[in-house]
Design a protein around this nucleic acid. Structure first.
Lengths: 341, 341
DNA sequence: CTGAAAGCGCTTACAG
DNA sequence: CTGAAAGCGCTTACAG
């Protein structure tokens, strides 16, 4: 591997000082157009790219934003969040650094070593319930903290989230306007305690809606994977009920779709006999015509990234803690309640 | 934000030189145990974390690996890849940098500015078909290149992939051993030209298997989203066939599951009347009991990361271009061919 | 509008 | 086993 061109090489090639190269390449004012042109050409010819390391060392700005993911990187929500963050960062010349603190071992290691420390200008934390010690460790990073979908936000300078509870209330309400009276909630697959907040909020919203709208709760179904596959078990549980629900609210689109598939195999027509509502309105909902609660995950990520960049640049946030609206998207898995239940 | 402790602060606190602190903290030999202990304590007390920027500047190693993603970050495969890469990097003190080159505009911008240049020690490229100019630009990064799931691998120093063609042949073969004679292939949702390689390989494998095992191809179904939702259209297409297939191979688990759901709504029992095979064996396959071709995406990511680290450390790769085995995972969506078709 | 000098915080030879 | 010095490649005041 050959030696990479440095700012000195460019300066020499353009016949100016490194100072001028630096200014010209960063589009700063007070550089003569002709000079700038000469510098740009020299840089391009030499295939020059500035070392963020050297710049960071002297400016104190790394031009990087860290994303700290609780649980796992994989998954629709975290993927969309990354996408949205990247949308914003990439246009502003910032790099995206990924950290995961999934298992408790990994979590401990992260908070002990704080690899993000001094290596990013801000940190975005997603789907995390922090202990006091972890909160302190995060503060010690000494950089702006943005929280996405976090239950507490006081440790952060900015946050973005949806109201899971309210979203679920709206889902139940939508189904009740279709005449549904008997409901069940389909819980998520293998819930992890660390991640349970959103899930709990959704169940809480579900339960509150049942009360508020005077409906019947036929019980919360779980998606555990002991024995047969989870969706099959959940479907069997519904079919074995002496008096079945006519509407089901699911934790996620994936849960909803696999349940629907199983129920239909048993001859239940959906939505004719039973309505099923997903959550997320992810690509799979579109693919399978699943009614769902739309959560604009990509926009949430973008919003968080904008907040991070504002804080980095010393801009105070007009709206530090943002609550993003969800939306009911009716597709083909929900319909009027059956006349004879 | 207060000033962060530097190596000088730690050195002063421990009563040693910065040289000794540097050695002690990096677990290098030739430091007296007592000295090391003292340094560790001082560093911990001062909440010290080394600046990767400063270290990078002098050592020439950024301790970062870049992941360049074609198309989009979101999705099961890319998520698992990230997960696997992270598994390896995190235990070795390396950071993960994400770049996306999805739209052609973004792609152009990436290859023009090469933001990864000098800011990572290696780059892993996933699901990319590169033009010659792009290949050259990538070479200009002057760092090891690892390709994941790429059609050409000659631009890389190492690669990891599955054999999509062979995997699909095995899927068809598995179904044929169950007595199936009439097949269809369900293509992916909104195929993008840039990403089409794997998809084409899967169709190619499907077609070859049809020939090789003397089967009947009832046609390739597409998942386009004009009009009704994609899965519904695909299901309708199958139902309208004068002579239907008894087995369907789908591009992905998501496609397969939504198709199954639609077919069952129309009274088709699966697998009794029709077998459907997914691809990926992702979490949704497990959830919904979907038979699938298992592709160990996380292991692929980990393998790529290991290769990257080896190349960074000057270790030559024992197995530079790795082909990872896929596996047929029968679950509940495939079964013996119906006796009366 | 441009330059020469200083310095960011580390690691790397070179000594001892 | 440890230290003093040099230097990585930039940006930032300070001048002119």
């Amino acid at each position: 591997m050959g030696r990479q061109a440095t700012i000195t090489d460019v300066a020499r090639a353009a016949g100016v000082s490194t100072f001028t190269v630096s200014k010209a390449l960063r589009n700063q004012p007070h550089v003569a157009p002709a000079t700038r042109q000469r510098v740009l050409e020299a840089a391009s010819k030499l295939n020059y790219a500035a070392s963020k390391s050297a710049a960071a060392l002297v400016s104190g700005k790394t031009k990087r934003v860290a994303l700290l993911i609780g649980e796992q990187i994989t998954g629709w929500f975290n993927g969309c969040i990354q996408e949205g963050i990247y949308d914003v960062l990439s246009t502003r010349g910032y790099d995206l650094l990924i950290y995961r603190a999934g298992s408790s071992k990994e979590r401990q290691s992260f908070f002990e070593h704080l690899p993000a420390k001094r290596n990013a200008d801000a940190i975005i934390v997603v789907s995390f319930t922090l202990t006091d010690a972890e909160t302190q460790a995060l503060q010690a990073l000494d950089m702006p903290i943005i929280a996405i979908h976090s239950d507490t936000t006081d440790f952060s300078q900015g946050s973005v989230r949806i109201d899971d509870r309210q979203a679920e209330i709206e889902a139940v309400h939508y189904l009740s306007t279709l005449g549904h009276k008997r409901f069940s909630f389909l819980d998520r697959y293998n819930p992890l305690p660390e991640y349970s907040w959103g899930a709990n909020q959704r169940i809480n919203g579900y339960k509150e809606a049942i009360k508020r709208f005077n409906l019947v709760d036929c019980g919360v179904l779980s998606m555990d994977n002991s024995g047969e596959h989870p969706a099959k078990k959940a479907a069997a549980a519904i079919l074995s009920m002496p008096k079945r629900p006519t509407a089901i609210c699911a934790w996620s689109d994936n849960c909803a779709l696999s349940l629907i598939s199983e129920l239909r195999q048993s001859g239940i027509l959906i939505p004719e006999q039973l309505s099923v509502m997903g959550f997320d309105s992810s690509d799979v909902a579109e693919l399978g015509g699943l009614s769902s609660v739309s959560q604009p995950a990509r926009a949430i990520g973008a919003n968080a990234a904008k907040k991070a960049l504002d804080l980095i640049n010393g801009v105070s946030l007009a709206d530090a803690h943002t609550l993003i609206k969800t939306q009911i998207i009716p597709r083909d898995s929900t319909g009027p309640a059956p006349v004879v239940p």
